[in-house]
Design a protein around this nucleic acid. Structure first.
Lengths: 335, 335
DNA sequence: TTGTACGCGTTATCAG
DNA sequence: CTGATAACGCGTACAA
């Protein structure tokens, strides 16, 4: 049951040698090592990580902080991170807490303060969170995925540029009545990435001398649907194109249009952001990112930092526009 | 920086007293305790969990094994579990691995073998997995969510009964050409819960002297859509009703029907299982379960077990049918 | 009610 | 290349 001592005895060596043989640190004669490994195997020996952590200070664990797990984007990130960590022999401890929530406070004060990890990956952390100071206060390697943060290693797409790009795409097609769907509702937690996309949209509209129109919606298909319905039902002022804050919202808008008998794209163009699993099924033109890969890269960066390499600044993750059938030129206005 | 020793010194007591004061174990004079807590607070002291785990044998961590995180069902379970654990001060370490995958083997051999947890919750574990023996071999409290497993505490809905129930609902409406959509594809990992629903469907069909018709599909909207399309496109043998293995598949079928110009429910009834977030939007008749709550209950059960209470057998989680507009009587057959 | 002293299982140091 | 031995930081009998 217990211990490296038994392994050592069985292999006829000291604990020290057994430890070296099993961890790979320090010189051990090849056949000694074989004997130790054999003994360990026979006994089904597994090192106590509490004990080894106590002395090495390493936990072989990465903490991941996400606001939610249900959304496609977060799910992909989690899977990417977990896959990479598993390969490296690291554990993943998952913390789910919305920004500004009561859980969030407890998370920092209690859970993260225990420092049961060698590094942290935080997704969609909000910059105005006082959390940020606390996070750096832990003095542990940290990587953020999502929005840019001052003084923290960050990885994510350029949301402002993308918001601008997709709006310009619609403008280039000839649309002038373009609405943005999916601004953060007042009582929802802040979401910087979406705000940035909205900024890009506003910039592009202003640059074209058009008035931006923004509608709030939480980032789900159902909320996109619910928010789009009244907007599209108003026959007089109905937009000819919709910029979705993300694919879920855009898909919600497409479904709403279908229900209202509005043809997509002939009567309504819709564009999204993300590259959601469902985008192709709805023929949604979108800007694809690869959150799963971002998770993997975040792990790689974090590992470098854990190994002492200096990693700084922001890395912009790739994103590319994928044209599908949900966007086209606006229908000619009846005179 | 380091240690309870410093706290003790600052409070003018011994390490032992400081420990007792902070953990709450053993007698400590009220004002002594206050002094210690004050000192700990001033120093920002947080106990090293490696050290305390080493001596107590408790990690205050629960391991969670899921096949995937992307599906609604798993996401809800994860959130429910995490919420409960957070309240209890427990960490959640997440392992994502499909049954029968290479990761799965590594998971058991390496990760779970380290026993860095006080208990395990496994979701949709497959009974034929040799994993099962290994799991019980760890001799740690274990709770499974999903399908029943011999000798393991399990929590989940009665999938066979539900499969039967929803099929009977369609039969009672007068349908005779009822297809099951969402059987596990050959090259997919096994999924007992879905197989059980299929069994219930088959039982109900046989009992009504009807021939069951089963189509494979992975449990996503897109796959449900892809699998439903050819089935519905075949005008001659098209079913009048579809039993979805889960709501995602059912919704995929509804979307496929829309695309093909088949009206739901007048020309096609569709029923699902789960109570997915999107069910209401698609007016889907379904049997709701509450995986989030199951996660919470699983944690409660696990905590009892960790505290030494004997918990055994299977608990059937509640599920109830919700009638919506996707099911109705079949259209009269043209003569 | 408090303090002393030991042990948890490893790894790291330092002789040999 | 190997073996003794000292930490690592904490909890807890046991004695006071």
């Amino acid at each position: 049951m217990s211990g490296i001592a038994e392994v050592a005895r069985r292999a006829g060596v000291s604990k020290a040698t057994a430890s070296r043989a099993l961890t790979g640190h320090g010189y051990v004669a090849p056949d000694t090592r074989a004997r130790v490994e054999q003994a360990a195997h026979e006994l089904g020996y597994v090192a106590s990580s509490s004990a080894s952590s106590l002395v090495t200070g390493r936990t072989h664990t990465v903490a991941l902080v996400v606001p939610r797990v249900g959304r496609w984007y977060f799910g992909e990130i989690i899977e990417g991170i977990e896959r990479s960590l598993m390969q490296l022999g690291y554990d993943l401890t998952l913390y789910v807490a919305e920004p500004d929530s009561r859980d969030r406070d407890r998370l920092y004060r209690h859970f993260l303060a225990r420092k049961r990890f060698d590094g942290v990956i935080a997704v969609a952390l909000e910059p105005d969170d006082s959390d940020l100071e606390r996070l750096v206060g832990f003095a542990k390697p940290t990587v953020c995925i999502g929005n840019e943060l001052p003084g923290v290693v960050t990885l994510g797409i350029d949301n402002v540029a993308i918001g601008r790009m997709i709006t310009q795409h619609l403008l280039a097609l000839g649309h002038t009545r373009i609405a943005f769907l999916g601004a953060t509702p007042n009582d929802d937690p802040p979401a910087r990435d979406v705000d940035d996309r909205e900024s890009g949209y506003v910039q592009a509209m202003r640059a074209a001398n058009l008035e931006p129109t923004v509608h709030a919606a939480a980032l789900t298909i159902t909320d996109g649907y619910a928010a789009a319905t009244p907007v599209l039902a108003d026959t007089d002022s109905r937009p000819t194109a919709i910029v979705g804050a993300c694919d879920e919202v855009a898909i919600g808008a497409i479904i709403a249009a279908q229900r209202l008998g509005i043809a997509v794209p002939s009567q309504l163009s819709v564009i999204g952001v993300d590259g959601h699993d469902y985008a192709e099924m709805f023929a949604l033109t979108t800007v694809e990112q690869d959150p799963c890969n971002q998770g993997e890269r975040a792990v790689a960066m974090l590992m470098s930092m854990i190994d002492g390499a200096p990693v700084v600044g922001r890395t912009t993750a790739p994103a590319r526009m994928v044209m599908r059938a949900s966007t086209t030129t606006p229908a000619p206005t009846p005179a």
